[in-house]
Amino acid sequence: MSETGTVTGEDGDARSKAARSPSLWLTILSLIAFVLLIALGVWQIERRAWKLALIDRVEQRVHAPAQPIPSPASWSTVSAASDEYRHVSLSGRFLHESETLVQAVTEEGPGYWVLTPLQRDDGTLVLINRGFVPSERRDASTRRDGNPQGRVEITGLLRITEPKGGFLRTNVPQHNRWYSRDVAAIAAARGLGEVAPFFVDADAGSQIAGGPIAGLTVIRFPNNHLIYALTWFALAFMLAGRLIVTFGGGLFRRKRFVQDKAGGPEASARRTGSDAGTIVEPT
């Protein structure tokens, strides 16, 4: 305000504009965040398409007719992408004295998976997850009637080894504590020879009376990618809306101020506000 009580509109408008305008760095960071949120949303859409294709592929494998397991010559090429959950068949003789119990929690309750080597006619070994036993049947002497001594035919799902251990639990072979079906570690602990780098989950048709409960393989693939994508997109549009309000709102207020007549009711109502123009004190 000057000695005559006059404040120029240009000075007031400059101060108001400076107070309302975001900093350059804040604007740049907001734009980068917007682009990143959109990219995350697109990535989740792509992940969803991949997950749906995976689910469809696994469903086809599980319900296909059982095929012989891969030959030893191709064991090095077996992978989760090309072989896991494939419906397979094999035959041989169980080596019950070398079975391994792996802790498990199933729809039957807590207990153990019983992994037993199956020796095939060519001498190679394949670990068979024969199924589940509760804690009270942990000792093999409680289920001798379910341990066949002769040749058996097994069908089930090919599974990829689970190295090191389970969630927050590491296998302790020296104390015979197992939390995951780590084929290589189990084979080494039991002194087995040439063992397939995978194991087979026996299906219900391979269950033997008095033996472990087979056919409990759970196939579940969480698919929340659409929810994640919508969340990222929503955050991006909220940020975009905030930027529009920040920049567009100031422009709108400036336009209104220019168009209002100096002596109009709007100018009078705003003369002490941040958008005030020239103020002349009455004499």
Rank of each mutant, 00 (worst) to 15 (best):
P134K: 04
E136Y: 11
D201P: 01
D11R: 08
R254E: 11
T106S: 13
R270Y: 06
R256L: 08
V183Y: 00
E97H: 14
T4R: 06
E10W: 05
Y112K: 01
V42H: 07
T155N: 01
A185S: 11
I69R: 10
A204H: 11
F257P: 00
T231F: 03
L26G: 15
A240N: 15
A234D: 08
R20N: 15
L230I: 08
A49N: 09
L118Q: 00
I38D: 03
F199S: 01
L251D: 09
L226K: 10
E10F: 13
V7I: 09
F199E: 00
I279L: 15
G250R: 13
T8L: 14
P134S: 05
A214S: 09
G191R: 07
V78I: 13
M238G: 14
G166P: 02
S74F: 06
A196Q: 02
W232E: 00
G264C: 09
D13S: 12
A187E: 02
A81M: 12
A234P: 02
R93A: 07
E99W: 05
H87V: 03
L115S: 02
K255R: 15
G273H: 08
P134L: 08
T170Y: 13
S141P: 03
M238C: 07
L168S: 13
D122Y: 05
V195F: 03
T8I: 08
Q103A: 05
Q174Y: 03
Q149C: 02
E194P: 07
H96Y: 04
V133E: 12
R61Q: 03
A18R: 11
G92V: 03
P110D: 02
W178E: 01
T155F: 00
I186F: 02
G248P: 14
V78M: 05
G166E: 08
G248A: 15
A49G: 12
Q103G: 07
R242A: 14
E136I: 06
I32G: 08
A66E: 05
I38L: 12
A39E: 06
R151K: 06
R86L: 15
R47W: 07
G277E: 14
L95Q: 10
T272A: 12
Q149R: 14
